[in-house]
């Protein structure tokens, strides 16, 4: 079925970020940087198992380098804004515009649960990040907060069951987000190979699982009384 071809695009019709491919590349790069932060953040926080001096010393060390700290914070903020802005633009296109009339019946054949719920896991992670900052950085999360005593704040915070539960749920969602995102980003940036892609997919799931376990071990240890 075809009618006469008119209105054909040329390279000048859309700029890089105007296109879906450009926005996905921005999501992928910002996603990699955020992932780097998630890893480093977890590695830092696991020092909680080495006792209050170690963790509080680590926090003090970061504070002692204000230039690096603020550089990292601003970079992360920029990445978060780029990641979210792009995802919102794409979500509006995909969910509201691209298919105005839906199917009476529709069956997914391949997409994983994690992949299909990126538009849910993402925003919930955002809510979590905001609460997380309120609780442990700004001290306004409603749990006991002592300036400079990260260890005590974490223990006091996670003793509150709903706080721990929300934290654990959010980490599971972050793990799902990354289990799809960490392999998806390779294709967004142009890499897919029959030999390596299956390996990348398995690694993405493995790394996401490690992140979930590493992070939720902290509230669980606090609730179980192993860390006090």
């Amino acid at each position: 079925m075809s009618t006469t071809a008119v209105a054909v695009a040329n390279r000048k019709s859309l700029r890089f970020y105007d296109t879906t491919v450009g926005k996905k590349a921005v999501m992928a790069v910002s996603g990699i940087i955020l992932f780097g932060f998630v890893l480093a953040h977890m590695a830092g926080n696991l020092q909680i198992y080495e006792g209050p001096e170690k963790l509080n010393g680590y926090a003090k060390l970061l504070r002692a380098m204000p230039a690096a700290l603020w550089g990292a914070r601003l970079t992360l903020l920029l990445m978060v804004l780029l990641h979210i802005w792009s995802s919102v633009k794409l979500a509006l296109l995909n969910k509201l515009e691209a298919r105005p009339t839906g199917y009476v019946r529709h069956k997914n054949q391949s997409a994983s649960y994690a992949a299909r719920t990126m538009y849910w896991s993402g925003p919930i992670i955002l809510c979590f990040v905001i609460y997380h900052l309120m609780e442990f950085t700004w001290g306004v999360g409603g749990t006991p907060y002592l300036e400079g005593n990260v260890y005590a704040n974490v223990v006091a915070g996670f003793k509150v069951l709903p706080v721990s539960a929300f934290y654990i749920l959010s980490m599971i969602l972050l793990g799902m987000h990354l289990s799809h995102g960490l392999s998806s980003l390779f294709r967004s940036l142009g890499f897919d190979h029959p030999r390596y892609t299956p390996v990348i997919k398995r690694l993405a799931v493995a790394i996401s699982t490690i992140i979930v376990i590493g992070n939720i071990s902290i509230p669980i240890s606090v609730l179980a009384g192993w860390v006090k």
């Binding site: 054909v8 105007d18 794409l90 054949q109 299909r116």
Partner: peptide, 27 residues
């Protein structure tokens, strides 16, 4: 040139964006 132009046209036609779900490949 081809990649720039064809991607632009795909977008201008009002199709959605790829989220790497793999439904297309299965179908």
């Amino acid at each position: 040139e081809r990649a720039l132009n064809m991607v632009a046209q795909w977008n201008l036609e009002g199709f959605g964006s790829c989220t790497n779900l793999g439904e297309c490949e299965a179908a």
